Amino acid sequence: MKIIQKYILAATFLITTSMGVLSVAQARTPLVLLTDFGQADGAVSAMRGVAFGVDPQLNISDLSHQIPTYDIWIAAYRLYQTANYWPQGTVFVTVVDPGVGTERKSIVLKTKNGRYFVGPNNGLYTLIAERDGIAEIREIDEKVNRLPGSADSYTFHGRDVYAYTGARLAGDIIKFEDVGPVLDPVILTKIDYQKANRSGNTLRGNIPVLDVNYGNVWTNIPKSTLDQLSINAGDKLQVSIFHKDKKISTLVLPFENSFGGVKVGKPLAYVNSLLNFSLAINQGDFAKKYHVESGADWHIQVEKSASSNK
């Protein structure tokens, strides 16, 4: 009886081990989709269908399909916000493309940390390229990397070119070198915005995006820059918000480590989950109350207030 039990245990181990090896063998590079399509129609499903048609074993995920229509800047920030949490080798198919069918190039950008971004050269990769660096850019050769039978379609490159090429790359059907010819990185279209910087006791930066669920205002000023002014919990900060050259508001706010540092309904400054300077109202909507929006033309100025108690 003991001998039989040993054989059963050994067989179970071999089967379990074999299944584990099989699972590893079937694993695929993640293919991540980002669009402004919404999901009220079949556009996203069509892209997924094309990708699965290339390789039924693909590991397809969604970053978001709720990017505001035509908003290249917000899409660029969502890539910046999330890309580095995905494994090296991940392929991002990014389709916010108001210039579809025009002369803007279709490209695949490989970052220095080994992630791939498939989409139009229209500014989508501004923040990714600055933070992660460009290893190489290739133009998609549509004579090879285009959904068969789609040559007469000019307005859905997300399905016909980007999903198809991204799936072939993620499925290891093509190598990066097979995408198309190498392009000089200087051709990359970039969106101009206020970089985070310090001048004396003044910090300046951009308001790239709002925390859409709560109305918190996020900036691109990193904690490391904030620390240069020796700002600590309880300090008072003078914060001015601008849209283009127009000042929207100036406030004196306490800097706190978390929302509970102030009473419910009161505003504060804090460092968000990306370790960037941000503004909020405890259980309220800062952006709505103070008429703040976001984008490349919104910026902020921060100074340590003379009324600070530190």
Rank of each mutant, 00 (worst) to 15 (best):
I281D: 07
F255S: 03
R168N: 06
Q81A: 15
K289C: 07
G284Q: 06
G42Y: 15
I134A: 00
I8M: 04
R204E: 13
G295K: 07
P267Y: 06
K195N: 12
G205C: 05
G38A: 05
V96R: 05
R146H: 08
I137T: 02
G180A: 09
T155Q: 11
T165N: 04
K223V: 15
G49M: 05
A10V: 07
G133Q: 02
P254H: 10
Y116W: 02
K195E: 04
S230V: 14
S64V: 06
S64T: 14
K175Q: 14
V182R: 03
V217D: 02
T16L: 15
W86Y: 15
T12I: 14
T165W: 03
A83P: 04
K246G: 11
L279N: 04
D36G: 07
E142M: 07
S153P: 03
G205W: 00
V44D: 05
A46M: 09
Q39T: 15
L169H: 05
K105Q: 10
T155R: 09
D141I: 00
I174A: 00
V91Q: 00
F242L: 11
K236E: 13
G158P: 04
S258E: 14
P120Q: 01
D245V: 13
A135T: 06
F259V: 13
F52L: 12
A10M: 12
T202H: 05
I248L: 09
L203A: 05
G171R: 00
Q66P: 02
G215Y: 03
P254V: 07
N113L: 07
T35R: 03
R168T: 01
N113M: 10
G158L: 01
Y125L: 07
G123K: 09
S273A: 15
V93D: 02
G42S: 12
V252G: 08
G284P: 09
L58T: 06
G114D: 12
I187F: 02
V161I: 11
G119I: 03
N113I: 11
G171W: 01
R138Q: 08
R168F: 08
G180K: 01
Y270I: 08
T12P: 02
F92N: 05
S307D: 15
E136W: 01
V292S: 04
S153R: 11
N216M: 09
S106Y: 02
D132V: 08
I241P: 04
D245K: 14
Q194V: 12
V161K: 07
G295C: 00
Q26F: 11
A296S: 14
G234Y: 07
H299Y: 09
M19W: 10
Q57W: 13
N197I: 14
R78L: 13
F255W: 07
A51I: 09
